[in-house]
Design a protein around this nucleic acid. Sequence first.
DNA 1: AGACTGCCTG
DNA 2: CAGGCAGTCT
Length: 696
Amino acid sequence: MFDSCISRNSDSVTCESEAAFLLRMNLSHPDQNMHSSSEGCLEDDKPDVMLPCFRRNMYDEPLASYSNGSIISQLLRKTIHNKRALDDSHFYLSSSTAVDSSQEDQSSVSSKDSTVEAASPTGHVSTAASPEREHPMTDHLQAKRARVENIIRVMAGSPNSRQHGDSERSDTDARDNREAREAYRENKRKQRLPQHQEHSVGGPTNRRPASSSSENSNTKDEECHKLKEQLHSMQRLLRQLQEKFLQVYNQEDPENRGETEVAVEHDTLGESIASHYISTEDDFERKNSRVTAECKDQMKVVGFLVHQRESQNLKETLKQELSRAVNDCVDRVFKKVSSTGLDPSPQQRMCSSPEMQISLGADRKSQQAGSIQEQPQAEEAAVKPRSLEYYESSEAQSPQDQTEALSLVVRKPSVTPLSSVNPTVKRPYPVHQTPFQFNYSTPLHDSQILEHLLKYGPHSNFGGLPCMPPSMDRTSPDSVDLPWDTIAMRSKVTSSHLGHHARSSALGAVTVDSLCLPHVKIECGELQSMAERNPYMSLNIQEGLTPSHLKKAKLMFFYTRYPSSNVLKTFFPDVKFNRCITSQLIKWFSNFREFYYIQMEKFARQAIVDGISDVKDITVSRDSELFRALNMHYNKANDFHVPDRFLEVAEITLHEFYNAISAAKDSDPSWKKAIYKVICKLDSDVPEDFKTSSYL
DNA sequence: AGACTGCCTG
DNA sequence: CAGGCAGTCT
């Protein structure tokens, strides 16, 4: 599950961690800090300063080290000791005694050894000590509990964890944190100007910030892209965290006291978050101290509510927090994008496509929800069980989803306007002979695209789509002006080289037959009328011969060398027969016979050259070179058991050729006709199984 | 005339 | 494998 995340884990983790931090800030300042929060994710260097452990882990450790525990586990382990420090800070007020000089390394190692990390000294806050030093947490369940609690804190962006996480750091780390905060403030200052203007003007969109410089505008596209990428990473990580938490939570013994405590603490956490929602506190340090006091209050409530909460409550609350975090980030990103007034990104320029409109609709929906929850009443809204819809909306508006949908949409217009690109050549056939299949290609196309999407996903290649050969574009029914070159080109692709595309377009095959076979062109009008009578033909009826049909015909050749039209119609029930198709099928068998007889003549002559005097010495078995040649031609995949009768017929044919050549009958130009007459009588019945489409 | 076939060619 | 053509048959 995390494999896909590993490639961008550094961004994801750092951004996620910072997102929790920024989310907290946003909760405190729903109006002003929203953009700064999203902007904060853009700071590449900031994660380094703030959470060097993550950065180091991501870069210094081989990815294999995460194959098992996953990044989430690392993150959880990292935050677990913060939680412990938080819990214990209410009971222990000891000062840090074991200040590790190599604090950054300690932090990086902390993910590997939580015990060592728990021994990490306190930072500038100097309130947290590590009781695990004296009382090592040997209870596995307790560790789980702490992990879960910290998940909640990280996800909800609780200041508690952050604060105490900072408090555990050394002076050097604290210095880094100070730098980080300064950088954060600086970033906030930088962004406030446009934001203030935005709010003062009252129009969040299409307003060029007064502070925007040319350099700024040049990098906005890039920033927007980065924002989206980081947002996507955060969304993924949030989902993963949620899953991880639920997994850990479900493993908890219902009888375990840790469960209830976790639930209770989470509820109190929700209250804390709610209080921060309406907070206008702007100063980081002040909030830290305030949060510390709040934590103490929370702990008092813990014992009071221990037995009143149920697991479902925790689940719902956690889902809410997760969903809200994602949606907040989404809202910020898109508001940021819209407020910058920059030109629509390449993705945004595709808004004309329905898919993109859908995505934008989801965005708008999310933004509305986000604006609601940014209001002071968000405290109440945060408790509402709305996790599912939020989660779904966040998924629907995933940048990745947008991109994928767009990539599909882009392909259509890029291929469709053929008539405007290619030089128009007068078609050799009257207008009414327009390829009729376009009349019903549209519903076929759409439904199959949908099926294709559902089946293979949006990234799959549509070249394999039955009705979408590579060069087979969709054209409106009145594609009379379709250039002849285009049609001819398509005919080549769809008819001559159908073998490269499994079950390629029947439409294309019909086009071929109706346009390229001279003796068939008369049928075009009839075909068109037929199509007009039934423009929405059943998808089960092939309008042309596919490579599967060809394969089936080859297999049928093992039974019948001279199939009649009725036989063909009987054994190709899924083919809409017309003279075009019939002629093509007959031509196929003619070609099969041609190859067959050529091989027979060749091997008969070879037998004569080899000095075989008695025709009885010529046999055809499955080991014969002749059979291998034939089998390679008609049963290339070798997935069909050739009937013995075919071997007999082949042997007879070889004997006939041998005798004729031995008798010097080959001097007669029509000496083969006698052989053909013999062979045509040796046809056997084709098995009934061929009548079904299972051989396709 | 149309259907069917085979031969030649690409 | 298909196009083109010619031949045969009905």
